[in-house]
């Protein structure tokens, strides 16, 4: 009823509505095209993963596997130590993400308060490492000296804090109206309680977003395994697959080298196919879990404890 009133008041409204409808259609088409563009290569990899390697050398595979074969996937999965690597990846992703969120969010929250003493100092301390770093060798020696070599904690501790994410939290918390806190403070709560009870639930969308980024980072991270472990007991899935890919590429390059007689046929799986198989296995789990997190992007969550 309200709308009709408005329409009567504003004759342009009808034209507007039609314009809006057109707009929506255009938006829809454009978005769909963009999505196709984004998703098709991924899909192409997916079908290549299930296609026989030798056959995949010939062009023309666009919509479905031409010669179905589980070989690439099987080759990728049969590597020794896969199960424990999977466990390691999952564990580190979960623990690392949860702890990381806590550390970054707390920092972001505290620094968002203008009254925080030493606030600028903290900001500067956080920003400088974004530009300068000692490099591969000093970092390695540092990890060794801290006793983290070949230690599970090397996956968690160094990445607990990220300035980038902390700043995003900071921006989110800056927008929070102080009125929310005031009533809690009057009740005698300390900042930790406020943080846990009030602030975190409000920033759920941000938390969900950053969680996904952090989780993906942990899940895909392989260089730390390579550099900071002896690679015997605490392997991660990402590392195992990267290693598989490098091995295959190396073997391929041997086949091409002229200075030896090893230029011979490979049957079945080829370099791309194995890579693609590894990729599918490595990224599918997290790609599946992600939609569950999406729920938390839903619009506005407000703990209505204060009348606006």
């Amino acid at each position: 009823m309200m709308k009709t009133t408005a329409a009567r008041r504003n004759p342009n409204r009808i034209r507007q509505r039609r314009g809006e409808a057109v707009f929506e259609v255009i938006v829809f088409i454009v978005l769909t095209l963009i999505i196709l563009f984004l998703v098709y290569p991924f899909y192409n990899c997916l079908i290549l993963a299930f296609n026989d390697g030798q056959d995949a050398l010939n062009p023309g595979i666009y919509l479905y596997p031409r010669m179905f074969s589980m070989e690439n996937i099987l080759k990728a999965v049969q590597i020794e130590g896969m199960a424990s690597a999977a466990f390691m990846s999952v564990t580190r992703t979960i623990i690392g993400t949860v702890l990381s969120i806590l550390v970054c969010a707390m920092f972001g929250y505290a620094v968002s308060k203008p009254g925080l003493k030493l606030r600028s100092l903290y900001m500067v301390i956080a920003m400088i490492p974004m530009f300068f770093s000692g490099g591969m060798i000093p970092s390695f020696l540092n990890i060794r000296n801290l006793g983290l070599y070949d230690n599970f904690l090397v996956y968690i501790l160094p990445t607990l804090f990220s300035t980038f994410y902390a700043i995003i939290f900071l921006a989110t918390y800056r927008e929070v109206p102080p009125s929310l806190e005031e009533s809690a403070i009057l009740d005698g709560a300390n900042q930790f309680t406020i943080f846990y009870r009030i602030i975190m639930p409000i920033s759920k969308p941000t938390i969900a977003a950053i969680s996904v980024f952090t989780a993906v980072g942990h899940w895909n991270s392989w260089m730390d395994t390579m550099l900071y472990t002896g690679k015997k007991t605490i392997n991660t899935l990402a590392y195992m697959f990267s290693r598989l890919i490098f091995q295959t590429q190396y073997l391929q390059s041997l086949m091409e080298s002229s200075d030896n007689e090893i230029g011979m046929k490979l049957y079945g799986a080829t370099s791309t196919s194995i890579m693609v198989g590894a990729m599918v296995i490595a990224t599918l789990p997290i790609a599946i879990i992600y939609p569950f997190f999406q729920k938390h992007f839903a619009k506005g969550v407000m703990i209505g404890s204060i009348k606006g």
């Binding site: 620094v111 925080l116 770093s133 000692g134 540092n142």
Partner: peptide, 29 residues
């Protein structure tokens, strides 16, 4: 008085010092 807020900042600072600043001395090379 802000002990709780300062504590919130602490883990981040410790991590930064341990893993970002300590190796930074390597920049002299």
């Amino acid at each position: 008085r802000q002990w709780d807020l300062q504590l919130m900042v602490l883990p981040a600072i410790v991590v930064l010092i341990l893993f970002s600043y300590l190796p930074m001395s390597g920049i002299i090379i």
